[in-house]
Nucleic acid binder design. Structure first.
Lengths: 140, 140
DNA sequence: CTTCGTGCAAAAGCTTTGCAATGCG
DNA sequence: CGCATTGCAAAGCTTTTGCACGAAG
């Protein structure tokens, strides 16, 4: 997993890299799961007690505008935020039972992608997160 | 599109078929789009001025428990409700730009499903919602 | 220094819940 | 008639916004 640090690029683009922004970016980019704003907040608070949840939301919006994060509507009605590293194309399989995630290279989706584009003129996202059951949990 | 009236079945199962429940069911089952609770409410109010939005929410939860309706998280953070006539398995493509949804029969996923099970021992969910761009939004 | 970002507090949705009244079966 | 369901009102949650202070460049 390549670790291009996006911080230099962001600074070069004139954005202010505050400690809050760094912390949120660090949590989002290092998490396997897609986290909610509240979860991100909880992970950062211990090191930044003054942090406000509003700042987390604003930072997440900013990260979306610069293309580093995508917001996904979770089935519980909350939003979850996913890190989109540039140049590392893969999709996720997420086990609905134990939460484990698997990475699948994009090529596995080439056929489906082509078919959906042909039949529905629908262009699939580059980053998919598909629910299901992993080996162990499906066995039970 | 088959039009089995689910009302007799529901009554037979001992549920009370109030005018509010009938009205919500009628709106949900006859809509092409997946509606929000507010939209359903707006369509029913003219004929039932005393109707409360809370009743719409409670009726939608009831319809989910009896398997006639599924709740989908919309990218704007609200829930949208889809009528699920029995025996019509499909997945969803949801446009990240305009929110439009497309239905794709499950068979289109058979190959991918088989491959993920073979290679990763991962069993895909029966109901997927895939993000991407629809025809119009991809064109821009 | 100047401007952008933050903390705080309050507001704005969407959805749920408690309770007495209503009406379905 | 009895009890599930409703209307009403209020609360709960997630997310957004206004504003003055504070810090980054």
């Amino acid at each position: 997993m390549p670790h291009d640090d996006p911080v230099p690029m962001l600074r070069q683009q004139g954005y202010r890299l505050t400690s809050q922004r760094r912390a949120v970016l660090r949590v989002v980019s290092s998490s396997e799961r897609n986290l909610t704003a509240e979860e991100i907040f909880s992970e950062v608070v211990p090191t930044q007690p003054a942090l406000d949840i509003a700042t987390v939301y604003r930072t997440l919006q900013w990260l979306q505008t610069v293309g580093l994060v995508a917001a996904l509507a979770s089935s519980d009605g909350r939003m979850r935020y996913e890190y989109h590293p540039h140049g590392n194309e893969h999709h996720h399989l997420i086990c609905q039972n134990c939460g484990r995630t698997l990475q699948v290279p994009s090529e596995a989706f080439a056929t489906l992608r082509a078919r959906l584009r042909q039949v529905y003129a629908f262009v699939l996202d580059e980053h998919l997160t598909l629910p299901g059951l992993c080996a162990e949990c499906a066995a039970t």
